[in-house]
C-alpha cells in the first residue's frame, strides 16, 4: 500500500477541524502570528492549514509527500527520508539546520522554528510515528466531518478521483492535481478551481526535480578525474618541453661556445 490523501475542495467547508486534529496529535502549540510567517497559514506550529479563496471555497494545504521528493534528495545529511509506506519523514537528530530542503521544495512546505535557539524543520509527516505505523489513518482525514479529505491507497484514490470527475460532469476541472506534477505526489487534489497557486511554479513539469541535480552529481567523479588528469598531463607536457628547451639551449651554447675557443 502506498499511503495517500485525496482532498476534494468542493466538499471542504473550511471548518479547520483537520488543523485542530493535527495540532492535537502532534502536540503543536498555539499559533502566534509571527514576522517570518508567510501568508498561507503554514508554520512550524501549523503543519496543515485551510486557505480561504473567494466564493466560499477552501483549500487545505499540507505536505504533498512527493513520490520523488526534492527535499530528500537535497538534504546533505539524509535527515529527510521517504518511507516505504509513502510519507516523507524528518529525523531531527541528523539535521544540521542548513534549510536546503526549504529551498528545494517546489511547494514551499517545510517550515522552520525561527524563534528558538535549537530550531528544527517542521512539516506534515502524515502522522507516521503516531498513527500510520499502527495501521491508523492520519488525524486530519479522520477528523474531517464532510469527508472532503480522505485517506487510502494512492492507486485507489486516483481511480476514485477520476471517477468523481467522470460522474459529475462540469463540477470539477478535468485534472487530478498531484497525479503527474514533479513525478507525482501522494497528496492528490480535485477541484473546481485552478490549484496551481499551491506551488511556486505556475506550470510544473512532470519530470521529478531530483533529475535536475542528478545530472550534475553524476558528472562529479568524471569532472574530478578529468580535471586531475588534464592538469597532470599538462604539467608533464609543459615541464618536459621546458626541460628539452633548456637542454637544447645548453647544447646550443656549448656548440656556439666551442668554435670560438
Amino acid at each position: 500500500m502506498k499511503a495517500a490523501i485525496l482532498t476534494d475542495t468542493t466538499k471542504c467547508i473550511g471548518c479547520s477541524e483537520c488543523v485542530l486534529a493535527c495540532k492535537k496529535v502532534n502536540h503543536l502549540k498555539e499559533d502566534v502570528p509571527r514576522r517570518w510567517d508567510t501568508d498561507d497559514g503554514l508554520s512550524a506550529r501549523n503543519w496543515t492549514s485551510v486557505i480561504g479563496e473567494p466564493d466560499n471555497k477552501f483549500v487545505r494545504k499540507q505536505c504533498r509527500h512527493c513520490l520523488e521528493p526534492a527535499c530528500v534528495s537535497a538534504c546533505p545529511v539524509g535527515a529527510m527520508h521517504k518511507t516505504e509506506l509513502g510519507p516523507v519523514i524528518y529525523d531531527s537528530s541528523k539535521c544540521i539546520g542548513c534549510r536546503y530542503c526549504m529551498m528545494a521544495c517546489p511547494f514551499g512546505i517545510p517550515r522552520y522554528e525561527w524563534s528558538t535557539i535549537v530550531p528544527y524543520v517542521r512539516k506534515c509527516i502524515l502522522c507516521y510515528e503516531t498513527r500510520l505505523k499502527h495501521g491508523q489513518q492520519p488525524a486530519c482525514t479522520e477528523a474531517c466531518p464532510t469527508k472532503a479529505t480522505i485517506f487510502g491507497d494512492r492507486d485507489e484514490l486516483l481511480a476514485e478521483a477520476q471517477q468523481r470527475i467522470r460522474n459529475n460532469p462540469g463540477k470539477y476541472l478535468n485534472r487530478v492535481w498531484g497525479e503527474h506534477e514533479v513525478g507525482g505526489t501522494s497528496v492528490l487534489y480535485i477541484s473546481d478551481m485552478d490549484l496551481s497557486f499551491l506551488a511556486y511554479g505556475e506550470h510544473f513539469g512532470d519530470k521529478p526535480l531530483t533529475q535536475t541535480t542528478r545530472v550534475a552529481m553524476e558528472a562529479v567523479p568524471f569532472t574530478f578525474l578529468g580535471v586531475g588528469m588534464a592538469m597532470s598531463g599538462l604539467y608533464w607536457i609543459i615541464h618536459r618541453r621546458m626541460k628539452l628547451q633548456t637542454e637544447q639551449a645548453s647544447e646550443d651554447t656549448e656548440h656556439q661556445a666551442s668554435p670560438e675557443e
Binding site: C75, P76, T213
Partner: peptide, 10 residues
C-alpha cells in the same frame, strides 16, 4: 551521514 544525491553534500 552521507547523501551523495545532494549537491550540498558535495
Amino acid at each position: 551521514y552521507w547523501n551523495p544525491h545532494s549537491p550540498l553534500f558535495e
